[in-house]
Design a protein around this nucleic acid. Structure first.
Lengths: 197, 197, 197, 197
DNA sequence: AATGAATGAGACTTCATTCAT
DNA sequence: GATGAATGAAGTCTCATTCAT
């Protein structure tokens, strides 16, 4: 029991170090000895917990997925109206990244668009689970008459995801500030009121 | 004159090969001998035209930038109304990528995750030129009374850019079809009519 | 303790191999894999102990310097008269090389022509320590009245060093025999008795 | 005739450039394109006049040998007494180097002790022709009764050559001044008068 | 004869991984 | 389980040499 815990500690500290380093320097520019050092373990220990360097990337991602799924569940029932759920979702989604910038970089820059990774795990796209959830929330809002009947759900989902993604990418690359609530309100203003004069 | 042409050919064929390979396999998984072979030159020739492998990445991007700037200029005067210009811009922007999928992957997927690249171009330039242009078009539409006076121009720009970017990323990663005109119309429907019931 | 010893062994075996190979084939004609093989280590191990190939040259020389300094100290107090000390010094100096022909070639032939080396050690140190010591011994002989008062100490030092150096270079290049005692006696005969009829 | 001259010009300018560059940077650190540029010819032209890079080294040396042989002949008959000839020889020998420091470095540092070169051309040692000449002059002095009958001619030759060589090496490496006449006189004082009190 | 762009063998070096301790 | 020195395959890049012009 005690050993299991310590074992879990090492595994976890490797994943934590990996997410930080991969996000800072990129997967290919992170050296395994450096990763071991940051995790506070020896180089050999990496291979007691993971098959190889690729495996560390994949398992780091799986850890991330687990985290965000938990997050998703925790905010699911906070609100009754579909519109309110969507608003909560957007803010929670962005907050997840804002609270952990390393992980944000890891997912948004390094991982999300890694062709090798996507090729190996097409279904693991971290975005997919979000998109599907968001799509279902939007469909719910349409079904409940909160959004108009002929709204193209897929297009609106893409707009919202793209808006969040793009805003966060700008935040990461240009190192600016990011206020989730304000971001959501500005978006809402446009899609609710339209842009026309 | 003859020599200059051949010289330009080799340099260009290396860039062309680089864009294809980097987009297909990623920068780090592309081997220089493989790149040379694809370009139809010897390994040594790479280093007659470029400082090192990194330089090939940078110069390939600069070539891309030049291309898109030319594209921008060519569509500038096609339409009188600001709204028309924006619609033309969106379609032309997406078409640039659709017409050259390799370059699309190169810019949208590979370039974004390259730390060397980000270090050299911290302002994320390829997109910046577009964004700035788009922002000015939207501002023009507001000024001309085509869009409402209190429209948050920056937010709308980000929405539109994010929507295009996200749609194209999905297109690339999931290998689906992409119709620029339809894409633009769906977006217009939402931002013109709003989403509310 | 055990590991430390093995560690020192590897480092030393690389230096030993380097001195032999550099002296036999020259620095530039010695390939690192060959050097690794001769040292009984892998190619990668070279770079666990040294920064690069140049560093192996430098460190080999520094090892040599340490060796000869120890030699110098060991012969310092063997004799009371300054003249005797000088004679001992000459014989010991030459013996150092005769006993280790690889190191002799390394220092006398290879090291002298290495621009990297000269740049790092502009004062031509390996010889300087000797020269300075020899100069002080000769000065002592003058002070004690064993040599004449108006002897140009520097010139005599240069003569003696040059004579030894030249004799040894001939020995190395022409692969002849070398008897340190005989060499010293022949020199003594001339400088004691002069050359005139 | 005109072409022959121009041809000789190119060949000579390559040799001149080689002697300078080889002496400054060493044979292995001199790049052939750089050598071509310094000589004012194209890279390909090098191979119209020389077999390969090694050949340029060898031919540069042969050119040097020719030069010094001419020098030797020109001073041969300047003096009647053997002692005078030796003195003239020493001064002329050193002057050859002082007047052309590049060539001095080339011969004394780069070429003389290049194992590859010596291995290929053991008889071409630039020193040999000098030594032999000097030996014969000393022998002449002994025969003429100017030096004592039992003088060890070889030892004295080695002393004198070593003294000159060592003095010049110090001059080159430490970048000091060198006065051939003074150098000769200091040497003469010691070997004529001896060192003893 | 002169050119210099092109060549490609081969150099040095890196770094993910192993395994004896 | 933990270590980290050792490994060696494989990478990028250099540079003497060639040959079409």
């Amino acid at each position: 029991m005690y050993k299991r815990l310590r074992l879990k500690d090492k595994r976890q500290s490797i994943i934590d170090a990996a997410i930080v380093l991969f996000s800072e320097k990129g997967f290919h520019n992170t050296r395994t000895p450096e990763l071991a050092k940051k995790a506070g373990v020896s180089e050999g220990t990496l291979y007691n917990y993971f098959i190889n360097k690729d495996d560390i990337l994949i398992k780091s991602f799986e850890y991330y997925s687990e985290q965000v799924l938990n997050k998703l569940k925790s905010i699911e029932d906070d609100c009754d109206s579909a519109r309110g759920k969507i608003e909560n979702f957007v803010i929670a989604h962005i907050n997840t990244y804002v609270e952990n910038k390393s992980m944000a970089r890891f997912v948004l820059l390094e991982l999300r668009q890694s062709p090798e990774f996507i090729k190996k795990y097409p279904e693991y796209r971290p975005v997919k689970v979000f998109m599907d959830h968001l799509t279902s929330l939007i469909q719910e809002a349409v079904d409940q008459g909160e959004y108009r009947k002929d709204l193209d759900v897929e297009t609106f989902t893409t707009m919202l995801m793209g808006y969040m993604d793009y805003s966060m990418t700008k935040w990461l690359l240009l190192d600016t500030e990011l206020d989730p609530v304000e971001l959501g309100m500005k978006f809402k203003d446009i899609v609710h009121n339209g842009i026309l004069a």
